[in-house]
Amino acid sequence: MEDVRPEGGAGDKYSLIVPTYNERLNIALIVYLVFKHLRDVDFEIIIVDDGSPDGTQDIVKQLQQVYGDDRILLRARPRKLGLGTAYRHGLKHASGNFVVIMDADLSHHPKYLPSFIKKQQETGASIVTGTRYVKGGGVHGWNLMRKLTSRGANVLAQTFLWPGVSDLTGSFRLYRKSVLEDLINSCVSKGYVFQMEMIVRASRKGYHIEEVPITFVDRVFGSSKLGGSEIVEYLKGLAYLLVTT
């Protein structure tokens, strides 16, 4: 084995892009946990807030007082404009050579960040994606229906798309910045189909993708939804990817 430093490669900087909408409390917890788990790493947190009415931006400003406004960047937008464009917006302001995308609802725990970074350094991968469906990974807080839908969706995608990754809709990922820029410009889907499109296109383009196990604790504060319309969106996304990639 080569000697690989577990954290903080020389000269590497990581930009964490976190889109928020009404995540007042969660964003504070996330920021604390990121600083706790990434001690010797050069990073910045870019918070793309879509005009949350609950005062998310005020909390972010308070956090900037604590941690410094060079480490926490608030790049707000006037209103809800969608996830895909939030990443694009955050990316414009990213100064790191790697970008991490994560959800603000605490379902993505910052304690896994070091394993993403370590995996990237060990393998030289362009993308490291978090997967819930391997040993060491897992989900908490899903009922049987949700698990069934998730497994069904996964089997469908694996059978028809051959994506080369075990978790398509997870969105906790580390990208080389240039790769994310390339991908984001070729993806048009919305919502969580966007996550699927990103990783399938990356796989088709031949980018080196690695996986690390993550656990997923469903929303602690606030509620998550998965209804019939999500399933229809998913199937449409699947068909779209079949004919365009």
């Binding site: 917890l29 604390y32 308070q62 725990h109 990974g137 989900v139 604790v217 602690v220």
Partner: peptide, 30 residues
């Protein structure tokens, strides 16, 4: 074989308490 992680929910609650304590001391309204 759906992998579940009930222990993670407990750990997360501990992290939340810890984070809230820290941030409260620093004057963040949590």
């Amino acid at each position: 074989h759906f992998p579940t992680c009930p222990q993670e929910a407990v750990l997360l609650q501990q992290d939340i308490v810890e984070a809230k304590d820290f941030l409260k001391q620093r004057g963040v309204d949590v």
